[in-house]
Nucleic acid binder design. Sequence first.
DNA 1: GTGGTCTAGACCACC
DNA 2: GTGGTCTAGACCACA
Lengths: 124, 124, 124, 124
Amino acid sequence: MEFNNNQAIYLQIAAYVCDQIQLQKWQADEKIPSVRELAVILEVNPNTVMRSYDHLQQQDIIYTRRGMGYFVNKDALQTITKTRKEEFLNEELPQVFRKMRLMEISGQEFLERFEKYKTNINLK
Amino acid sequence: MEFNNNQAIYLQIAAYVCDQIQLQKWQADEKIPSVRELAVILEVNPNTVMRSYDHLQQQDIIYTRRGMGYFVNKDALQTITKTRKEEFLNEELPQVFRKMRLMEISGQEFLERFEKYKTNINLK
Amino acid sequence: MEFNNNQAIYLQIAAYVCDQIQLQKWQADEKIPSVRELAVILEVNPNTVMRSYDHLQQQDIIYTRRGMGYFVNKDALQTITKTRKEEFLNEELPQVFRKMRLMEISGQEFLERFEKYKTNINLK
Amino acid sequence: MEFNNNQAIYLQIAAYVCDQIQLQKWQADEKIPSVRELAVILEVNPNTVMRSYDHLQQQDIIYTRRGMGYFVNKDALQTITKTRKEEFLNEELPQVFRKMRLMEISGQEFLERFEKYKTNINLK
DNA sequence: GTGGTCTAGACCACC
DNA sequence: GTGGTCTAGACCACA
């Protein structure tokens, strides 16, 4: 995985975990990769993965069972979807709108690029 | 000016300067506020403003004349518009598209919100 | 390290780092001294070293890894050698030539002094 | 005249004056341009030219006669030639030698470039 | 321990 | 007055 330098790695890992849950690749009460496993996969220090898991646990997205590992919380999917959607609509979109106006990008142009993006994704 | 805690102040100041240039409030070869002046206005340490100006100078957006101050570069407007647009289209938009798909927000819904935003802005 | 008063310390530190790389004492992807370490060694303020490292990072000579330190970029050696050579041939040499003509110093005399310099160095 | 940003403008102007004297374009006891004249020619603030003249006067290179202007000192040519030559041989040349070794530029290559330079100059 | 940002205050050279 | 550099000290986030 490639990390963006503008955001803490542990947050990017947490986001990655949320992605998996949101895409329903990791489902409720299912075990997720152990700290060490994920550390190897992502080529990161285990401490960093640990911190991500800590972070997610505090948000009730995952929970831990002694000696068994970390598991997806029952309502993780809902929680994630809800908070992410709120944040997106209230925080990010206005910024996007503002920039579109400044750079004179029309809603039409946006749509076209969106369609292009979707077909590109589906081909992969 | 209110600062956002997620981004370094000096970067926010740099962005602010770029905004002024993009809005053509500060034009080519025009003097911009001195380091000390802006520091007082924004209620920040002069060093912080200095750092912003340094940053902008390295991007050929402003230039300095000994003992006279900082001035807007001739093609600053172009440079800013170009780099900002590129960054928006190549970096930000794909992220937006990705999230829209994840959260099942349609292009239609986006457009509606955009129109709403535009009318809100115009009323102000 | 002794600093020359005609040039900013942070630039002299940057030059020192480049020297180390050019002499291959610090190799590609190798960690260089931490900001604090070097500050202690050179008896300067950490901020000053920081500024040097910042400067070198912008020139893609070193890079940083969060919480781990600064490392020599893969093609730092090439970059340094190339830019230094270019700068020397295009900027400095013409000045030297100019002065040699003004002061009537012949190419012959230059060569003699150069040979003398080289034997002196080798003796040390 | 184009100014180099690495050196104070008033020093560059002083060097320019010395050049003229060394090239014997301005001879002993001859009047040199007035502060205002030179300021116009070089597109600089008169204060800056003033400072250059001050500087040169302190080194006994020029002298002033009330209401008449500045004049080249009798032994200005000697003074300039001597101090410049000393500084060049003792300060600059060793630096040049050092860099030539680091960048593996041979005395032979130096000579070739020097000859090229001289023929270029003569054509102009 | 690492980098990174910010403040406060000082000093200098330049215009 | 302008920019530019440096120090000292603090605080934060990250690994």
